[in-house]
Simulated assay, not measured.
Amino acid sequence: MAGRVAAVSRNETYSFSKPNHGSITLLAGLGVEGDVHAGETIRHQFRMTYEPDLPNLRQVHLMHEELFDRLALKGFQVSAGQLGENVTTRGVDLLGLPTGALLRLGDEAVLEVTGLRNPCAKINDFRAGLLAEVFTIDPVSGDFTFTSGVMAVVRRGGTVRPGDAVEVELPPPPHRPLERV
């Protein structure tokens, strides 16, 4: 599987959306340089209050640009960075990846996928009704899956820019499906 980076975003302060930039620097074991969610331990504002010492499995948020296409068909105009992601991709089945998949971005950076993004209710403050559009329900089992991207940790740092290639390396089988982190 190969795709490309469509956009990169970061924000130094807690805010739902993140402004786009010409490049971001990924720091091994930490996340996106200059992003409020970078760090070895949890940086999610709500979760820090009750799990402050847990490892940060949400160092980098990746979202597939194809989600924006699907949301547009339902009347929601969303663009890169607006849902808080750091890396927006095109042509990569992020939601189909197993836990532990490696993503090579550009010439240097390597991310390890840790799980699904668990969107919070603030998404409805951004666009009313949007939360209901970023998960799917299996009609047979009733199980639901989040569709608002994946989370990853930085295994090897580097600079990432729009247009960079994204290459996927699957872990050895058996593959573990993504769960929310």
Rank of each mutant, 00 (worst) to 15 (best):
H44R: 06
F76N: 12
L95Y: 00
D35Y: 06
E108A: 15
Y50E: 02
H37N: 11
R58M: 04
R58F: 07
R58C: 08
E40F: 05
E51M: 12
Q77P: 09
F68Q: 12
V60K: 02
E112G: 03
L57I: 01
M63A: 10
E66Y: 00
C120D: 01
N124F: 09
G81Q: 04
T88H: 08
A101S: 14
D35P: 10
G100R: 10
G39H: 07
L102M: 14
T99H: 14
V78C: 04
V87M: 01
G75T: 11
Q45R: 13
N56T: 03
P55D: 02
R90A: 13
G39F: 12
Q59P: 07
Q45W: 14
E40L: 11
G100L: 07
Q82P: 07
G115K: 07
A128K: 15
T41H: 11
P55Y: 01
G129R: 05
L111P: 04
R70Y: 07
R47P: 00
H44Y: 11
I42G: 01
E65D: 13
R104G: 14
G84A: 02
A80P: 09
R117M: 02
L71W: 01
R47H: 07
L71F: 00
H37E: 11
T49I: 02
V78M: 03
R90E: 14
V113P: 08
V78Q: 06
L54W: 10
P55V: 00
R47E: 11
A109G: 13
L83A: 07
G39W: 08
R127P: 06
L94S: 00
V60E: 10
H37D: 08
G84W: 05
A38G: 09
R90G: 01
Q82G: 11
I42C: 15
L62Y: 01
R58I: 03
V60W: 07
L95I: 02
S79E: 14
C120F: 10
L94M: 05
D107Q: 15
A101V: 01
L94D: 00
G81H: 03
F126S: 10
A121I: 11
L111S: 05
F68A: 10
G81T: 04
Q45D: 08
R104H: 15
E85D: 05
Q82C: 06
L54K: 12
T88R: 12
P119M: 05
R117K: 13
G115R: 07
E40S: 12
K122L: 13
L130I: 06
F68L: 01
E51I: 05
A109L: 13
S79M: 13
G91Q: 06
A128W: 12
P52M: 03
L73Q: 15
L103M: 11
T99I: 04
H44A: 09
A109M: 13
V36Q: 07
G39Q: 04
D69F: 03
D53H: 15
D125C: 06
T41W: 05
G91Y: 04
T88V: 06
S79C: 12
R70L: 12
L116N: 04
R58S: 10
D35Q: 02
A109S: 10
R70T: 06
G100Y: 09
H64A: 13
A80E: 08
E65V: 00
L102T: 07
V60H: 09
T88I: 00
L54I: 14
Q77E: 15
M63T: 10
G96N: 03
A101F: 03
E85K: 00
